[in-house]
Simulated assay, not measured.
Amino acid sequence: MTTSRAKQAVERFALRGLTGLPEVVQRRIGRPVVRDTQTLADDVRLMLALQRVAREPAVETMPIPEGRVALARQTALIAGDDPVAEVRDLQVAGMAARLYVPSQRRGAGSHPTLLFFHGGGFVYGDLESHDAPCRLLASEAGVRVLAVDYRLAPEHRFPAAHDDALAAYRWLLDHAAEVGADTSRLAVGGDSAGGNLAAATALTAAQEGLPLALQLLIYPGTDALRDTESLRLFGDGFYLTQGFIDLAAECYYPQLSDDERRDPRLSPAYADLGAEVAGRLAPVFLCTAGFDPLRDEGEAYARRLEEAGVAVELRRFEDQIHGFLNMTGAGRSPRAAVVEIAHRLEAGLA
């Protein structure tokens, strides 16, 4: 075993051992973190403490190629490995993609399907970084999950990721039989930047009258201007930082003025929600994390949709941080949150 792999094995052992301790023991290690009347989950608090002890450099402080490698390594430390009946790599609209088939949805025919876009600030992430949550969503929800590897910034700036997401959705409508998808039970979803892409894709679907049954928006970015209290409260020390958010903006849309950042393809919060569009928008399950800089903009978007007459269920996981979707193999509380999301997905496509 190489030195780096041995180090990673030790880190994984320490992380999973610490976050797997009984809750009563975890509560006795260190002090609780309370902010904005919320208390951070003890297992998440210990993950963050272990990261500080290990002196892990922030991804946004590294050159982007190195940051991508570091983020992939960090994600692997907290990833689960839930079994599914089949995992198939394929091409979707010229992009690498991966289809997850749960045991409940094996065989011929058409099945409820989630088109999934990964997070990572439009700069990081790929099929591997979100393999674990896609597996868990597929197995727990009993739906097929089609994950797409869209183009990343700074190599490809706005609106490249948006255009890729929309192309993947159109491909799925045209090739549903190839992946066993039922277009009457189709969801788009994603986390963070992926939630942004899913929301923008759903808006286009509504504008064009295309089929969509559900939006699964997991702590989505919805407003590129982001002047929020949650950003001021949680922009440092809770995994997603102001520095990371600034880097994502510099890489994906550096050329845009404030007015141009209101483009709904980038900021769904400013979309025209007239009666016709709102009447066609797919129902929404939108969840946020209590200790997340993006919390307030996600919840503001949910309220705006609801005011326009869209069916919305908003769920705040008060004790979680941004990125909990990826933490399916470490601790108990993040995984429990993802399982709850999967059950909402299952109900939304029933």
Results as ranks from 00 to 15, higher is better:
residue 1 M to C: 12
residue 2 T to Q: 10
residue 8 Q to S: 15
residue 9 A to E: 08
residue 15 L to T: 11
residue 18 L to E: 00
residue 18 L to W: 04
residue 18 L to S: 12
residue 23 E to Y: 04
residue 23 E to M: 11
residue 23 E to T: 14
residue 24 V to C: 05
residue 28 R to H: 10
residue 29 I to P: 12
residue 31 R to C: 07
residue 32 P to M: 06
residue 34 V to R: 15
residue 39 T to C: 14
residue 41 A to S: 13
residue 52 R to E: 12
residue 57 P to T: 05
residue 59 V to N: 08
residue 61 T to D: 12
residue 61 T to M: 10
residue 63 P to H: 03
residue 66 E to F: 03
residue 74 Q to L: 07
residue 76 A to Y: 02
residue 82 D to W: 12
residue 86 E to T: 14
residue 100 Y to W: 02
residue 109 G to D: 06
residue 112 P to H: 06
residue 113 T to D: 06
residue 118 H to K: 04
residue 119 G to H: 09
residue 121 G to L: 02
residue 122 F to S: 06
residue 125 G to I: 02
residue 131 D to L: 12
residue 136 L to C: 09
residue 137 L to K: 08
residue 145 V to S: 15
residue 151 R to G: 04
residue 154 P to W: 13
residue 155 E to I: 00
residue 157 R to S: 03
residue 161 A to T: 10
residue 162 H to N: 08
residue 170 R to T: 09
residue 172 L to R: 01
residue 174 D to Y: 00
residue 179 V to A: 01
residue 180 G to K: 00
residue 183 T to R: 14
residue 186 L to D: 07
residue 193 A to R: 12
residue 194 G to Q: 06
residue 195 G to D: 10
residue 202 A to P: 13
residue 207 Q to W: 01
residue 213 A to C: 03
residue 215 Q to A: 01
residue 216 L to H: 00
residue 221 G to I: 08
residue 224 A to D: 05
residue 224 A to Q: 13
residue 227 D to V: 13
residue 237 G to H: 02
residue 242 Q to H: 04
residue 243 G to Q: 08
residue 248 A to F: 14
residue 250 E to A: 15
residue 260 E to T: 03
residue 265 R to G: 04
residue 265 R to H: 14
residue 265 R to I: 03
residue 281 L to W: 00
residue 284 V to E: 00
residue 287 C to T: 09
residue 299 E to W: 09
residue 303 R to Q: 15
residue 304 R to F: 06
residue 310 V to S: 07
residue 317 F to N: 15
residue 317 F to I: 15
residue 322 H to M: 03
residue 322 H to P: 11
residue 327 M to A: 08
residue 329 G to P: 01
residue 329 G to W: 01
residue 330 A to K: 07
residue 334 P to H: 02
residue 341 I to H: 00
residue 343 H to S: 10
residue 349 L to M: 14
